[in-house]
Design a protein around this nucleic acid. Structure first.
Length: 374
DNA sequence: CAGAGAATAT
DNA sequence: TATATTCTCT
């Protein structure tokens, strides 16, 4: 076997750890005992580690207590007084985890709310077997970005001059070297860096996440405590804002009623405390930092999202609604658009390469199916 | 003294 | 606005 062993506590998520159903922690939320059981059995038979509950509130509590889930599968028809779609949305936002909904008739809506895919009941084993790849892909994305970590100009070239910028010439401080890069090291929290940050914070639990710890665990050369402290401050602030704007009771009609600012402003921000992933619903903006050769592209997408691009929404969702074509084989067949099916951008070559690199030991999955699953 | 977190500055 | 720096308190 492979990764079944213990996971390094230092790295909350690594490809090796996540790249296999074995031990992946799945939270299943379903108020129908039968389908819950069925799904659970199937998940377990596929080596997932399953936690179940029947209500969204329980789910949130579970997430709060144990923030180490890798994936959430949720029913979308709970009860008349619970807005399941909103629940799904919150889960997506707060956990940043791949969320799978198990109802077909709301697939479009769910996908638009951020679900990474949708399975039908009764769940087909084949489909279940492939679910882990959502987690894998998320991790992959993080991993892929890692090498890009050049947030700082490498200290090597900076000599000793960086600490005290004004070394010799004190008269006129026209120290206008090729600044931009040598002088002003104003770091940029790229998606990747931020993801790393979020992972660590999640790992620690937000209540234990203090700058020094986070810094250590992130282990990014050049990153300083102050950077983390500052970021953490903002992160918390955003969480707070989010928590006061969203949770409440998930009431049926509360959803999109125009007034995003409901007067009521103190709810259970509880669950957010442990699952601090938020998402700023802002469209991306890629900025080119004018730095000449060393220019850097900053993507500022889903701000506080951990599994960012997986649930990136494309406009072509409007395409048809209910009839999700399932083929007897059990696997999804993208009768419609592939990316419509799952709301994810098509897998890239690099990703595929990475996936294949880590291929197997795991006979359960085959990467052809990525097309359907991811 | 170190370090967290808030406040303030850029 | 995003990040840095300073301040205050533990």
């Amino acid at each position: 076997m492979i990764s079944s062993s213990e996971k390094s506590p230092m790295k909350p998520l690594s490809i090796e750890d996540s790249f296999n159903p074995h031990g992946l922690k799945v939270l299943v939320v379903d108020n129908d005992p039968h389908s819950l059981l069925h799904l659970t059995e199937m998940l377990i038979s596929c080596q997932y580690q399953v936690t179940t509950c029947s209500l969204p509130t329980e789910a949130l509590q579970l997430i709060k207590d144990d923030n180490k889930f890798d994936m959430v599968i949720t029913e979308v028809h709970f009860s008349p007084d619970i807005n399941d779609i909103e629940f799904l949305e919150i889960i997506v936002r707060e956990t940043g985890l791949p969320v799978v909904n198990d109802s077909v008739d709301t697939i479009t809506e769910c996908i638009m709310k951020g679900a990474c895919t949708c399975i039908t009941k009764p769940a087909k084993k084949k489909v279940i077997q492939l679910l882990w790849q959502h987690v894998a892909r998320r991790v992959l994305r993080h991993q892929l970005m890692k090498p890009t970590d050049k947030l700082e100009n490498e200290p090597s070239s900076c000599t000793s001059m960086e600490d005290k910028e004004f070394s010799g010439s004190s008269g006129s401080d026209d120290v206008q070297m090729d600044d931009d890069q040598t002088k002003k090291h104003r770091m940029v929290w790229t998606d990747e860096l931020h993801s790393q940050f979020v992972d660590v914070v999640k790992y620690l639990g937000i209540e234990n996440a203090v700058p020094k710890k986070v810094l250590e665990l992130m282990n990014v050369p050049g990153l300083r405590r102050g950077n983390v402290a500052s970021h953490l401050q903002k992160y918390r602030k955003d969480l707070q804002i989010l928590s006061t704007n969203i949770p409440q009771g998930f009431t049926k009609q509360s959803s999109v009623s125009t007034d995003a600012y409901s007067p009521v402003s103190k709810y259970n921000d509880s669950f957010i405390s442990t699952q601090p992933i938020t998402e700023v619903q802002q469209e991306d903006s890629s900025i080119q930092v004018p730095g000449g050769a060393n220019s850097q592209v900053i993507e500022n997408k889903d701000l506080f999202t951990t599994n960012s691009p997986i649930t990136e929404l494309q406009p072509h969702f409007a395409v048809q609604d209910s009839s999700t074509q399932l083929v007897p084989s059990g696997a999804y067949h993208p009768v419609i658009e592939k990316d419509w099916l799952v709301g994810s951008p098509p897998i890239t070559d690099v990703e595929l390469q990475m996936l294949q690199k880590f291929e197997f030991d795991n006979p359960l999955s085959s990467f052809h199916d990525l097309d359907y699953c991811l």
